[in-house]
Design a protein around this nucleic acid. Structure first.
Lengths: 191, 191
DNA sequence: CTATGAAGTGGAGGTTCCTCCGCTACCACT
DNA sequence: AGTGGTAGCGGAGGAACCTCCACTTCATAG
């Protein structure tokens, strides 16, 4: 399957898509994560049907709206690795991850969809996240401080789980403990 | 606060509550977890308002409907501990837990509410689950195979996270890896 | 037995979600 | 530059959620 179904999107369609995305970014940041999709469509000047055509679920829209910031989160891996040892960097990044997901409330559920997506729809973000984790783990493996039989995708699932289970701001302490536990599981010697 | 707010519930109210619960159990088992609450209320012969009075959220109703079975799951701990060593028993129970939650689709979300409830509402099930985990961990600690600084409530959060993140039947493999990881984190030596 | 007010009821209706399909307008080809 | 086929549009409307409050019923004190 070469470049699976990458039809270039008609001009008016692309324009509408962009307008919806703009409206969504604005709406999420001013009205919180529970804005109605209807209102986003309206403020984008398109019908609700058009919104659903481009973003079939709320999660898809949220994911698209935050894709840039998510990318920044992934990029921060390099900085962390350059200022601290791999295990510490990994643990620190986990904190960033949870903080980020917790702040952008409504992202947590989108995240679940991102993680579950074996297929196309969110794969960009998914791949980036897996890549970031992979980099962190590899650094640890190279140094001998992290076991080498761990699939980064699984770790992503784990982080997602922590966020889903203890993502409310009031449960940050719980989330911390879980991250510690996860980290312990990743360290060499537990193998 | 002695027996916080335990007013005995008026006779007709109790009757209605039971009828709703009956209807819910029946509805969940025949129509799946997505039955509308409206239809449950109707088949119980009460107004939707009454249903909401007794079970303010869908999760509350699900939890109540499955409370018995959940108790059985907790009771199974004793059997497991009598037929295998603590670490294996704990791991085996984790599997049962995930299987159970996965089967009763719709339970997963209720679970989240159960776990988050520091307060009253679901505390019965919550306490039972924490108790079950506590028993398992204690057995391991006594034997020296499990670290002793782990709060069972955190482990419950972790299980909840695994279920939420990888609870779809198709992701059972992922769930397994996560449980292994969690288990590794709990074992003595990772401390 | 009655009166009283607290506890409980029910369902209409506002809100949001999401689907569906007749219509519009884009664009590739001549 | 006309035109046919089709990608894309929009919004009406059905389904479910959940709130709210005027009304009913219970149970207790007198």
């Amino acid at each position: 399957m070469p470049g699976t179904s990458e039809r270039p999107l008609r001009a008016d369609a692309r324009r509408n898509r962009d307008r919806v995305l703009d409206a969504a970014v604005r709406a999420f940041s001013t009205d919180g994560p529970d804005v109605t999709l209807d209102s986003i469509a309206k403020s984008a000047g398109v019908g609700i049907g058009t919104l659903y055509r481009h973003f079939p679920t709320r999660e898809a829209l949220v994911e698209a709206a935050y894709r840039n910031e998510l990318a920044k989160l992934c990029d921060s891996v390099a900085d962390l690795l350059s200022t601290m040892p791999p295990v510490a960097a990994t643990r620190a990044w986990m904190d960033l991850f949870v903080d980020y997901m917790t702040t952008k409330r409504g992202m947590a559920n989108a995240l679940k969809a991102v993680i579950a997506s074996g297929g196309n729809p969110f794969s960009e973000s998914r791949d980036r996240l897996v890549g970031a984790i992979s980099t962190l783990l590899d650094a640890g493996v190279a140094e001998g401080s992290v076991r080498k039989d761990v699939d980064p995708a699984i770790v992503l699932s784990g982080l997602s789980g922590v966020t889903l289970a203890a993502g409310e701001p009031g449960q940050r302490e719980n989330a911390n403990c879980l991250l510690d536990l996860l980290m312990d599981g990743l360290r060499y010697g537990a193998d």
